[in-house]
């Protein structure tokens, strides 16, 4: 299954994903999301499930059912837009609380056996060179932290350019 997390408005999403495969799940701004408050309830009270009652309490489980995660986000300061970052922040239950060493650094142990292929598509008319460099390092970090099988990052000026390349 493919999980697509995006920050597009409805008409843009319809245009880009109009013919998305049946096994793809879209996560967009139409869904109710609250911010992660760092309570660690998803680790020590309801392991694997976020305690916040909204559309994202089982986001860790949904990630675990995916073999591919595609993120489409406006590039903001070299990272994700607030909505997409909020979704990523809420994936804490995807991890165990216990620590391990991965790629020479301390990270969380995997809760699930899957290793997603992570692809990130940033868009923005005026992404600066430092923002691009930051974004590349950020996605690389996410790849290690999520224990992804692979990670790719690409940049587009606008959705038209992305649409043409994504086909």
């Amino acid at each position: 299954m493919k999980l697509i997390i995006h920050d597009l408005n409805q008409s843009e999403a319809d245009r880009l994903f109009g013919q998305h495969p049946d096994d793809a799940i879209l996560i967009g701004k139409d869904q109710e999301i609250h911010q992660c408050v760092g309570c660690f309830g998803c680790w020590i009270e309801t392991p694997g499930l976020c305690k916040i009652k909204d559309d994202f309490s089982d986001i860790g489980k949904r990630m675990a059912q995916s073999d591919e995660v595609e993120i489409i986000s406006h590039c903001l300061y070299g990272g994700f837009s607030p909505f997409v970052k909020n979704v990523l922040d809420r994936t804490l239950p995807y991890h165990q609380p216990y620590f391990t060493i991965r790629d020479g650094e301390m990270h969380q142990k995997d809760r699930y056996k899957n290793h997603v292929n992570l692809s990130v598509r940033f868009y923005g008319e005026d992404i600066t060179l430092p923002e691009k460099t930051t974004a590349e390092r950020f996605v690389e970090y996410n790849g290690v932290d999520l224990h992804a099988q692979s990670h790719t990052v690409s940049f587009y000026k606008n959705l038209e350019e992305m649409e043409a390349q994504r086909r």
């Binding site: 607030p82 909505f83 970052k85 909020n86 996410n142």
Partner: peptide, 9 residues
């Protein structure tokens, strides 16, 4: 998750 918390963004 490697970045700025979403509320602060």
């Amino acid at each position: 998750m490697g970045g700025i918390p979403s509320h602060l963004l």
